[in-house]
């Protein structure tokens, strides 16, 4: 471990805002894009399913 205590880790040598904001943005971007892709695909599949069901009806 590079840090002695959790407090030291959270302080990040004074650069906490910058470091955690960077990692946070990264997590949001990488995670967010994946989530958006999966959701969009599933939503489209559902719309196709309901459209077909209404056509068959």
């Amino acid at each position: 471990m590079s840090f002695e205590t959790i407090t030291a880790f959270l302080a990040m040598g004074g650069y906490a805002t910058y470091v955690f904001a960077s990692y946070g943005l990264t997590a949001l971007t990488l995670g967010g894009l994946l989530l958006a892709e999966s959701r969009r695909h599933r939503a489209w599949l559902q719309r196709q399913g309901s459209r077909r069901r209404s056509e068959e009806a």
Partner: peptide, 29 residues
């Protein structure tokens, strides 16, 4: 890989002699 990499970069890797802990931004930038 990303989980292990973040753990390594954020917690285990050393600080830099001049940039201090801010060097950890390198691991995402």
């Amino acid at each position: 890989i990303l989980g292990a990499g973040v753990f390594w970069g954020l917690l285990i890797a050393p600080a830099d002699y001049q940039q201090g802990e801010s060097v950890r931004i390198m691991y995402v930038h």
